[in-house]
Computed example of a mutant assay.
Amino acid sequence: MNRLAGKVAMITGAGRGIGAAIALAFAREGAAVALAELDIETAQATAERIAKEANSTRVVAIGTDVTQSASVKEAVAQTESAFGPLDVLVNNAGINVFCDPLTMTDEDWRRCFAVDLDGVWNGCRAALPGMVERGAGSIVNIASTHSFKIIPGCFPYPVAKHGVIGLTRALGIEYAPNNVRVNAIAPGYIETQLTLDWWNGQPDPQVARQATLDLQPMKRVGQPQEVALTAVFLASDEAPFINASCITIDGGRSALYHD
């Protein structure tokens, strides 16, 4: 339970879902954890729960808008002020923007990229200078199976997520000589609140849920903590030679040729 002992980590979008699961897993493994979240009330409640469940006093919530580079830079500064130099950054914050390409507004396009790609870059740009100077660091970007698979009706979300993989690979190679690793995780169907909201928004939620389960080789969807365990591995000293890579967590769905 000490795989991240002594490390300082910041996770964006950590108020709920995958981000909250990663923050909890990091705290349980001994890391000091900052939850950088737009909804500060949600982040504070989650931070209190994590502190209790992980029996840790080194958990803090920081109001952060990942679309604003100054906000992310300030979040890194606050994290380091509270706990010391940042060892790990997890760029998890993201939103779903699914539109028809020819009727999508400019605002929809910018909203998607502002969070899902610019937000990742803003995190990297804020964390990298310190990591490069110290000659150590791990950045984990939460991508998606949309990063390499296309589902009709989901534009422009996969375009942004393809960009996250490109950013991960480019920065991983750029800063490899400085012992800074940049990797990505590509989750498939994970039972987050967003997934539950989508099922519940369908005419028959149970039918919609079952249709999703039927698509999965393992006949279930993933859980946020299953993504969190991989994030722990990439952030830890157990993955020193994994860089500019992407680990897919989808139960084998993306390897399936057809149903």
Rank of each mutant, 00 (worst) to 15 (best):
A114C: 01
I185A: 06
S138I: 10
V120R: 05
P205Q: 03
T46G: 08
C112G: 03
G13A: 03
N178A: 14
R49A: 13
G163W: 01
F26R: 05
S69P: 03
A51S: 15
S71D: 10
D214K: 13
N183R: 11
G251D: 03
E174K: 14
V59I: 15
S147A: 15
V221K: 02
A176T: 07
F233S: 05
K149M: 13
R209W: 08
I190S: 09
E48F: 00
A176Q: 04
T79V: 08
N91K: 00
E53R: 10
L213R: 09
P158D: 02
L102Q: 13
F113R: 02
Q202H: 13
Q193S: 11
N200E: 14
T64W: 01
N91Q: 02
C154D: 11
D108A: 15
D106F: 06
L215M: 15
T230N: 11
L215H: 07
N2G: 12
L256G: 00
V227P: 10
A160D: 07
P203T: 07
D100K: 13
A244T: 05
A231T: 12
F98Q: 10
L24N: 06
F26I: 10
A211R: 15
E226T: 09
Q44D: 15
R110K: 12
M104H: 08
L35H: 06
A211W: 03
S71P: 14
T195Q: 14
V180F: 06
E53P: 01
V72F: 01
S81T: 12
A127N: 05
F26Q: 04
G123H: 07
G84R: 03
L234I: 13
K149Q: 12
F155R: 01
V115L: 00
D39P: 12
Q68N: 14
T192S: 04
T103S: 15
N243F: 01
S69Q: 12
Y157C: 04
L89I: 08
T105I: 06
Y157P: 03
Q193N: 12
E238M: 14
H162D: 00
A93S: 11
F113M: 10
G135A: 04
R28I: 03
I18H: 03
V115T: 13
A14V: 06
H162F: 13
G252Q: 05
D106E: 15
Y257K: 09
A114G: 04
V140N: 04
E29R: 03
N122C: 07
E29F: 04
A93P: 09
T64P: 04
A32N: 11
A255L: 15
T195L: 13
P240Q: 08
T212D: 11
D65H: 02
T67A: 11
R16D: 11
G251S: 08
L89W: 06
A126K: 04
I139A: 04
D106L: 12
G30F: 07
I11R: 05
N178R: 15
G130M: 06
P203I: 05
F113T: 01
T248N: 05
V159M: 11
R181Y: 08
G222K: 01
A23M: 06
M131G: 00
N92D: 13
Q225A: 10
D214E: 15
